[in-house]
Design a protein around this nucleic acid. Structure first.
Length: 289
DNA sequence: CACTTGACCTGTCCGC
DNA sequence: TGCGGACAGGTCAAGT
């Protein structure tokens, strides 16, 4: 689920809610969700505070005040939800809250703060994880070391975009967009959205894409990601922000999950197909191979 | 090298 | 209502 806009929304929420509170406890009932020994938890996590939450691609980086960090990957169904001491149910209007009382059956990790508030890592499918890393070692984490450029950073020029794509010049464009080594943070939703916007068929070989269309794609990626952040991300199924609320981008989506409906540009019926092994949505008229 | 498949998990939906 | 299979937003390893 969570791609760059969703992870960025969670990051912002956690930065507002969870900083500078002393961690009194951290516990998990599923080892793979928190591959940290009890000794290391006691030594490096308990008693520390989160002083900043950063992001690289789809990875959250929660910096502690002891030169260690917790890396959080939400994968498909992960959630990081903060609850103050008095909150049992989600804050705000019930319509934008997806989850109720916590912990629930998908809660994998609970972080307790000394003011009685808690941070819940929920993850239905158990693919996500929270790991502990010394700050000086972060750059050596392979996943981070080999990650492609951040599409919303200033340094992400068209030139960088193109040279990054050159590493997979003979690949299909959608497969390359999903590859975190090429560009960080794009997943199935925003790959479909940006390809629709740039009028490129997902199976097109990159070397066959015209310079003009490639430039459109570069612009489209940034536009789509920025719009989604503005809408608080996409809640297709499980995704919620740090307050447990849904994002609204999905109702603005141009093609994703719009199978059988009309293309907003030309009225043609949106088709679902497979590309890069994933469900893929296209307008057959706008996006020709 | 590029692409596909399977694995990691749980839950939901659809057809019979 | 029950059951089997397909599918779900991510990533990696192994196979073709």
């Amino acid at each position: 689920m969570p791609e760059l806009p969703e992870v960025e929304t969670v990051r912002r929420g956690l930065n507002n809610l969870s900083l500078n509170k002393s961690i009194s406890k951290i516990a998990s009932d599923w080892t793979k969700s928190l591959p940290v020994t009890d000794e290391d938890m006691a030594k490096y996590i308990v008693g520390t505070k989160i002083i900043n939450v950063g992001r690289r691609g789809k990875l959250l980086i929660m910096e502690l005040n002891n030169n260690y960090s917790l890396l959080v990957h939400l994968r498909m169904t992960g959630q990081m939800v903060y609850r103050s001491k008095s909150e049992t149910f989600g804050a705000g209007h019930p319509n934008d809250s997806l989850i109720g009382k916590l912990p629930d059956k998908s809660t994998r990790v609970i972080i307790d703060f000394d003011d009685g508030s808690k941070l819940f890592f929920n993850d239905q499918r158990k693919f996500g994880w929270i790991s502990l890393v010394k700050n000086t070692e972060i750059n050596r984490v392979k996943f981070l070391r080999t990650m492609g450029p951040e599409p919303l950073e200033e340094g992400f020029t068209y030139k960088i975009f193109k040279s990054s794509l050159k590493t997979r010049w003979n690949s299909q464009i959608k497969a390359a967009l999903l590859d975190q080594h090429v560009i960080a943070g794009i997943g199935n939703i925003y790959a479909d959205e940006s390809l629709w916007m740039a009028k490129i068929h997902p199976l097109t070989k990159i070397s066959d894409i015209s310079e003009a269309k490639l430039k459109n794609l570069y612009t489209s990626i940034k536009e789509v990601l920025l719009l989604s952040i503005e809408k608080g991300g996409s809640t297709d199924r499980n995704y919620v922000n740090a307050e447990g609320k849904k994002g609204s981008y999905i109702s603005f989506a141009r093609v994703f999950r719009r199978e059988g409906k009309q293309c907003y540009r030309c009225g043609t019926i949106i088709k679902k197909m497979r590309a890069a092994g994933r469900g893929t949505h296209i307008c057959p008229k706008c996006q020709k191979l």
